[in-house]
Structures are given as C-alpha cells and as structure tokens.
C-alpha cells in the first residue's frame, strides 16, 4: 500500500469507526415519543417584593431561545403559538411568566430551566466547553477545504507555467500541435468563445 493510499483509507475510515459506537448506542437507547409528556415543572419561589423585569416582547424573545422539549424541533414561542397539540410549550410558557412575575431576570429564568432540563432546553448550544467544537469545527473544516483548494489551484498553475516553459524551449506548443503565435492566439480566442 502506498503512503497516500494509507492516508486516504485512514481519513475515510477513522470517522466511521469512531462514530459507529455512538450511533449504535444512540440507536439502542432511543426512547423518543412524539406524544409523550416532556414537561417538568420549574416553579421557584418568587423573590421578596418581586416586580416583573421583562415585558411581553422580552418574554417572546426569551422563549425564542428555548427549545421545546418535544421532538418538534421548534422553539417554545413558535411551538406554543402554532402547534395546538403540544402541551409542553404552553406549560413552559406558564412557568416562564410565573418566574417573570416572581421577579426573575432573563438569565435567571434560563438558569432555573437549565437546572431542571439541562442544556437541551437551549435552542442554541452555549459557546463554552465541548460545544465550542460544535460551533467552530464547521468553519475549521471549510477553512481547511479552502486552503486545500488554494494549494490545488497553485499546483495546477505551476503545472501550466512549467508546461508553457517546456513548450517555449522546445519550440513546440504542445504535443502534436505546431503553430505560430498568431495561430495559437486565434485558436485560444475561438476556444474561449465556444466555451462561454
């Protein structure tokens, strides 16, 4: 096996081998039920002399950052205002309103919800810890792809330059083609025109 072949095989097979156990485990432990009750009450005691810190628009904005725990993949606001069959998002909305009336700020409400549901209550993973891999790896991968293309294009251009130099020194334009400058220019122009 050549070194290149080895690297190609390793690059392709490694992710498959690494991902397989996780996928199999997820497959085996899957307990998703669309009709299930995913709601868990979050009702901390109101603060003393509580006054609401958030208005309706702020509550709406906050609920757009929360994921409905049922498998609808929508945020709490969108789910509760459209999916009448889901009982989870209206219940979470009631908890949010209760916490707002209890004097909790947006960050405190999110924190209370995360204590109960964990990170899955956030529609967008926080940019911290392992989640950073999730956020930035696509950019790293695309950036690496961009660099690879830049390298490829440079190599191809160098090939073209080398071929042109060889043709000039040997007095031959390319294999099997002998033409004057003027003829080559006309041919190139015709090719360009034809390919457009």
């Amino acid at each position: 096996m050549t070194r290149r072949a080895f690297f190609v095989r390793t690059a392709v097979l490694a992710p498959v081998v690494l991902a397989a156990p996780a996928l199999l485990r997820a497959q085996n432990s899957s307990t998703v039920n669309m009709n299930g009750d995913f709601y868990i009450p979050v009702r901390p005691a109101p603060k003393p002399n509580a006054t609401a810190q958030l208005d309706d628009d702020a509550i709406q904005a906050l609920e757009r950052t929360l994921a409905c725990p049922c498998p609808c993949t929508l945020d709490v606001y969108t789910c509760r205002t459209t999916d009448v069959l889901c009982t989870n998002s209206p219940a979470i909305h009631r908890d949010v309103v209760r916490m707002v009336e209890g004097g909790y700020t947006g960050d405190e409400i999110v924190s209370q919800l995360m204590d109960v549901y964990g990170q899955r209550i956030l529609a967008l993973p926080r940019k911290e810890g392992f989640n950073l891999v999730g956020w930035f790896f696509p950019f790293v991968a695309i950036g690496t792809g961009g660099l690879a293309i830049a390298y490829l294009l440079r190599t191809w251009r160098n090939n073209a330059v080398a071929a042109a130099a060889l043709a000039t020194t040997s007095g031959v334009r390319s294999i099997g083609v002998q033409a004057t400058d003027e003829e080559m220019e006309r041919l190139n122009a015709a090719l360009r025109d034809d390919s457009r």
Partner: peptide, 15 residues
C-alpha cells in the same frame, strides 16, 4: 455531545 459529555443538547434552527 451526549457521547462525550453525557448530556444531550439541542442544535436547533438558529445554529
């Protein structure tokens, strides 16, 4: 994430 951190996260439309 669940495999590495032991905790399921949501990657929703905003991502």
């Amino acid at each position: 994430s669940e495999w590495v951190q032991g905790e399921k996260i949501t990657v929703g439309p905003p991502f």
